[in-house]
Nucleic acid binder design. Structure first.
Length: 785
DNA sequence: GCAATGGTTTCGACT
DNA sequence: AAACCATTGC
């Protein structure tokens, strides 16, 4: 508890901040508009800042913190600042740093709910029946555990999948419910009336394992504070000022957590936007924001409505669409920016064509000098990414997937971490179970069963049981030898921790355990990537003082700093895009069923639709200058091609701000009969009123520019002639002859190993071992032999 | 214990 | 269509 004692080092943040304070008004307050300034300067009492998209929300938060420090109201460690993502926390640290000087260690209580919860729990672990070195379970550990719990209840894990139970527990935990508090009616929700029983059993297992899951990081805090008023008071005293970002996304547990802390001083400032609440499925309660004034009487409410990000048309579209929602607090975004370019809406025949259109447009803009890093493609579901990625790869367009499979959830990272956990915490059964046979060493279920029996009857950790069992005759010679080798390894590595830098220990562990070998032997493309990831993992360890600190970080952090390198277009889900902005934003897949998502509609009806609409609003407001929407008439869903209808959201756009584009006809399906009869894109599926409006508009444009155009067989408005044929897009420059020759073995980052079948300029035809013949640019493969 | 096979499910977003 | 799981045969 060292940082309980305030220390004033020379050059500390507060001193620098004070130095920055000028007579007659602080420099950092300049340039704030009156509302922003009010939000910053109303330091005492509860404040709710309703900040629309692009209204300078983060600026207000960071300036407010700087202001608190600069005016001497608080020292950096008196302030609790909560964000939702680690990324947001990082960015805020950085921006505060810019305002008041380097802040790395200055704001110990700036972080996500979960990281702060973990920090608090570590200090008082024993009060909630944990030891301070408890492990934080990831999703996969959690599922494994739940499977065991389900099996122990003699339930059929097919009928009662662990995933479903995980969801149920998650929901309860989000609502702040301990097993005892689960309402009668819901208790029997799983496994034929045994929901709560399983919840209890799971919590017991967690306690024995000295572990907790994400939800527990908050729930245990609640219990800690309720049962130990002195501890609560300690924190209430400590956090003189509290700030919460993205308040619309807080769930009940987080709300209770905040309320306990804020009760005493009531210096709570929550910043949020009810129109950007997109995590209802995760238990977020928009009600929290709607009820703020009720919960904190006398709260000052500040509305930020001046948008500094987007052009007039973009803002008009965003405002228009969100206005279809009921139950809003009601904000109207304004801009003083010019109208700018109209939004475009383009229909494609199928998702492949849609991906192609997006790719073309990005290339066209790039050719005109726009930076790729200022362009982003935002999709509703990650399943849409594949096709777009394929297209990018084909075009040789550098791109980055944001928030993809999370770094720490990748198998190789989880494995490596399990090894490290075994070294650092020899009682970590889950970690041991994970790696006992990874790489394969002939220690399968049978062996594990024996170890489990021993461990359970002797009440000792698995690793200890393993060591004992190697001394007996219980195992056959081969597994016994393997197990002994492994255990000797762990003893060696454990000893190594003293005196050797932990990243070095990690490297040695991965090496000597045969783990890196395992991937090296696998000659697939993603094995390469996995080895890279492992290297990155080891490298990133250097930034932490010790192994414990590193493991803590990793179990909480969602995204590693992805390579920022180079000028790349971004591809991500709409959810991942919240808080980001780009000059040009592409929004493909605006179709009924996909967006709004059918599932959302089925599950939550009108509320679901409204959440989807907020998601649309988030997507639209990510753009500064250009917004391009797409839909396609056919899409593959669960492997089946389905005809699709443009999203109702397209019809909710203001006509005056939208321009309807027509996709150039494509010949790509002409050969050998396509999967469908080629129909005009103005077929029956475009029967919505908005679309007919758009169609009429388009027809007039068409006549103007093409002098009547050519009618097609059904007498509908003409399609423009073939402007592009697919092959053209593949090669941008064939100037330099490729250095690859037919028959060479190559490795492609996506398709894996293959053999070059033909060379044409810088285009290669490659027979890939796994994915067959493909045409790729030579810069995308490397020679392997 | 392991690889191969076949049958089933899946694509909703995240700490 | 691909990923995932459980069972089967070696």
């Amino acid at each position: 508890m060292t940082d309980l004692t305030p220390v004033h080092r020379p050059g500390s943040i507060s001193q620098r901040a004070r130095a920055a304070l000028q007579p007659g008004g602080a420099s950092y307050l300049e340039g704030l508009n009156p509302e922003q300034r009010q939000a910053v300067e109303t330091t005492e009492g509860p404040v709710l800042v309703l900040a629309g998209a692009g209204t300078g929300k983060t600026r207000v938060l960071t300036t407010r913190i700087a202001h608190l420090i600069a005016t001497g109201r608080a020292r950096p460690f008196d302030i609790l600042a909560v964000t939702f993502t680690n990324k947001a926390a990082r960015e805020m640290k950085e921006r505060i740093g810019h305002l008041v000087g380097p802040s790395a260690e200055g704001m110990p209580w700036l972080g996500t709910f979960h990281s702060i919860g973990a920090k608090i729990l570590r200090r008082h672990a024993e009060l909630v029946n944990l030891r301070s070195d408890f492990t934080i379970l990831g999703m996969d550990d959690q599922l494994r555990l739940l499977k065991q719990v389900i099996a122990a209840e003699n339930l059929d894990d097919k009928r009662w999948p662990a995933r479903q139970l995980a969801g149920l527990l998650d929901d309860w935990k989000n609502r702040g419910l301990t097993p005892e508090q689960v309402p009668q009616g819901e208790a029997g929700a799983f496994g034929g009336g045994r929901g709560v029983k399983l919840y209890k059993a799971y919590q017991d297992r967690l306690a024995t394992l000295n572990a907790c899951d994400f939800g527990d990081l908050l729930l245990h805090c609640l219990r800690l504070w309720r049962e130990n008023p002195d501890v609560l008071q300690n924190y209430q005293d400590r956090f003189r000022y509290m700030l919460v970002d993205e308040y619309q996304d807080t769930n009940v547990a987080q709300y209770l957590w905040l309320r306990l802390l804020a009760q005493a001083r009531k210096n709570l400032c929550c910043v949020g936007d009810d129109d950007q609440s997109i995590y209802g499925w995760r238990g977020a309660e928009v009600d929290n924001i709607l009820r703020f004034e009720h919960d904190f009487p006398g709260a000052v409410v500040v509305r930020l409505e001046r948008n500094y990000r987007s052009t007039g048309h973009i803002l008009a579209a965003a405002s228009h669409i969100i206005a279809y929602n009921e139950g809003r607090l009601g904000k109207t975004l304004r801009t003083e920016d010019e109208p700018g370019e109209k939004l475009t809406v383009t229909g494609a025949w199928d998702s492949e064509e849609e991906a192609r259109l997006v790719g073309e447009e990005i290339e066209a803009l790039h050719a005109k000098g726009h930076k790729l890093s200022e362009m982003a493609v935002l999709v509703r579901t990650s399943a849409q990414m594949r096709e777009i990625e394929d297209r990018f790869v084909q075009l040789g367009l550098p791109y980055r997937v944001v928030g993809g499979p999370r770094f720490y959830e990748r198998a190789e990272i989880r494995d490596a971490l399990a090894y490290l956990r075994c070294v650092a915490q020899p009682a970590d059964d889950l970690a041991f179970e994970r790696i006992i046979n990874t790489p394969k060493r002939g220690l399968g279920d049978a062996t594990l069963q024996i170890l489990h029996n021993h461990a359970r009857s002797a009440r000792i950790p698995l690793m200890q049981a393993a060591r004992l069992v190697t001394e007996t005759e219980e195992l056959k010679a081969k597994p016994r030898g393997a197990l002994r080798d492994l255990m000797r390894g762990f003893e060696r590595w454990h000893r190594m921790m003293e005196g050797t830098p932990h990243s070095e220990v990690a490297r040695v562990v991965l090496e000597e355990s045969g783990y890196t070998d395992m991937w090296q032997k696998e000659r697939t493309a993603d094995a390469q990537g996995r080895l890279e990831n492992l290297k990155e993992l080891v490298r990133s360890m250097e930034e932490f003082p010790d192994l414990g600190a590193f493991l803590e970080h990793v179990s909480l952090v969602m995204d590693a700093n992805e390579g920022e390198g180079g000028d790349r277009a971004s591809l991500m889900t709409l959810h991942a895009a919240k808080g980001l902005e780009f000059d040009t934003v592409f929004l493909p897949g605006w179709e009924e069923g996909l967006f709004p998502s059918q599932r959302s509609l089925d599950e939550s009806g009108r509320a679901g639709l409204e959440e989807e609409r907020r998601l649309a609003h988030v997507g639209l407001t990510r753009a500064r200058k250009r917004l391009k929407l797409y839909f396609s008439s056919n899409r593959r869903i669960h492997g089946l091609w389905q005809a699709t209808v443009p999203s109702r959201f397209i019809d909710e756009l203001p006509e005056a701000s939208v321009e309807v584009m027509e996709a150039p006809a494509s010949f790509s399906h002409g050969m050998g009969g396509s999967r469908f009869d080629r129909v005009t894109p103005f077929g029956s599926s475009y029967a919505t009123p908005g679309w007919q409006r758009a169609q009429a508009h388009q027809a007039s444009v068409e006549r103007g520019s093409f002098g009547g155009g050519r009618g097609n067989e059904r007498g509908r408005p003409a399609q423009r002639g073939p402007l592009t044929i697919e092959g053209e897009l593949v090669a941008k420059s064939t100037s330099s002859e490729s250095s690859f020759t037919t028959g060479a073995r190559v490795l492609h980052s996506k398709f894996g190993p293959g053999t070059v079948a033909a060379v044409d300029g810088n285009k290669l035809t490659v027979d890939f071992d796994k994915s067959g013949r493909k045409m790729v640019l030579d810069s995308f493969v490397e020679r392997t032999s």
